[in-house]
Structures are given as C-alpha cells and as structure tokens.
C-alpha cells in the first residue's frame, strides 16, 4: 500500500496509507487532512485542492493537462511546484510522495 506524506503549512505531518487508483485529493479528504477544500469534488473545476510537489516527485507524475493548467493559472500564488491533487492518482511508483499544503485555498 503506497504511503502519502501530507505536510500542512504549519509543519504538521500526516502519513496516510493510500489505495492505488485513488486521487491524492481523495486520500486527504477521506482521512480528514486539513488544508484541502476540494469544493468541486474532484472535477478539476475549482482549484481548491491546490498542493505543492517538489521537482523530484513531479518528475514521476504525468504533466498537467490543459484543464489543470487553466485552473492552476487562476491562482495568483501559483508556483512551479503547484499541482491540483485531484489530478494525481496514487500508484506504487508514488509510494512515499511528499505533498505540501499551501497556506490558503482560493
């Protein structure tokens, strides 16, 4: 079972056992990790599941699709590490992935 490490903006860590095929957003919301709002429920339509992922881990992810790009782009605090967690699907390759949560969701 792959593990996901969420780090809240204040440094609090949550290590969660996740299921393959589940989105990182859903791992967070179903385990009550604070800091991900996920208003649209995982439809890539609101950008309130914004997370920050380091370049090393990003290299293992599929590139953001056009629709993820257009939603990320609405966030003035977007950085190179920005991704939408509803678009990242857990797999064995991602075991140990570190997901940093931003201070706020828009």
């Amino acid at each position: 079972m792959p593990q996901v490490k969420f780090i809240e903006f204040n440094g609090t860590e949550h290590n969660i056992d996740a299921n393959n095929g589940e989105s990182i957003m859903s791992v967070a919301t179903s385990n009550l990790v604070p800091g991900i709002d996920a208003d649209c429920g995982g439809e890539c339509s609101c950008a309130t599941c914004h997370v920050l992922i380091s370049a090393d881990w990003q290299a293992k992810l599929d590139a953001a699709t056009d629709s993820e790009e257009s939603m990320l782009d609405l966030n003035p605090d977007r950085s190179a590490e920005s991704r939408l967690s509803c678009q990242i699907i857990v797999s064995d390759d991602l075991d140990g992935i570190v997901v940093n949560l931003p201070e706020f969701q828009y």
């Binding site: 208003d39 649209c40 339509s45 950008a47 257009s70 609405l74």
Partner: peptide, 13 residues
C-alpha cells in the same frame, strides 16, 4: 457544504 454551484465552476468560477 461547499459542494454547491452558486459560485460556478471552471475558469469563470
């Protein structure tokens, strides 16, 4: 409670 349509979704949210 935030799963509602009042703010719209997508790029015009």
């Amino acid at each position: 409670p935030r799963h509602h349509l009042s703010f719209g979704f997508g790029i015009h949210r």
